[in-house]
Amino acid sequence: MKETVFKILETICEDNIVRTNPDIDLFETDLMDSLGFAELLADIEDELGVIIAPSEVDRHVISTPNKLIAYLEERASL
């Protein structure tokens, strides 16, 4: 799962910093905007089969690559 998330993020953010610094804040650094966020949700559903509604989670819960991975792992374990 981790690898898939990194790949998705690298494509959307067009920057491998998401892999080298997985604690970077995606929204504050402008790596991800509202358009990128929509792509992220679509990709997560397609590749991981996890449906996250756009209003479901507060952005600060999944604002870094590590936080996003932790959130997805928790969802998968339910």
Binding site: S34, L41, A42
Partner: peptide
């Protein structure tokens, strides 16, 4: 509007 219109329009457009 971002959460209930824009994001949903974008996800559908990608699909």
């Amino acid at each position: 509007f971002r959460d209930f219109l824009f994001s949903r329009f974008m996800i559908q457009s990608i699909r």
